[in-house]
Amino acid sequence: MTPQEIHARLTERFGDAIGPWTEPERGDPHIAVAPGSLHAVCAFLRDDPELKFDYLQLISGVDWTDRLSSVYHLMSLSHGHGVVLRVDLERGNPRVASVADLWPTADWHEREAWDLLGIVYEGHPGLRRILLPEDWEGHPLRKDYAAPAAYHGVTNA
């Protein structure tokens, strides 16, 4: 199936929760999904026999300065087709359902997006920092992040 056909299938089933087919100037063509429906959309993509998205390639996070995005690259190894989903989140309170129960790959990828961008994945089995030390403050890939002057007495200046 082409991504456009997949988009049509999703719109037919989820209606308003699915945004228009987007082809940005730079980056991958993708489908915007309302945060509240993300988990249901993903479960449908994985379990529908014609779609059968059995492989989550990656989850990434983006800081657009006015909002955050969580981006999902999905692929079906059985059908050989792929699709990209994007959910836009409020910068002040970025929350979206975890998909770690659908694809175990999501576990570490969501922890990374939490660690570096502060996106909260609700229902994640253990949303802890994965790269930075446990007691690090802030989320460094946010555009307004300022590096600490010192960490455990080792200065940064």
């Binding site: 930075l132 992040y145 590096a147 600490p148 940064n156």
Partner: peptide, 8 residues
């Protein structure tokens, strides 16, 4: 400059 995580 931008390595918040690196000991200088």
């Amino acid at each position: 400059k931008h390595g918040y995580h690196v000991v200088k």
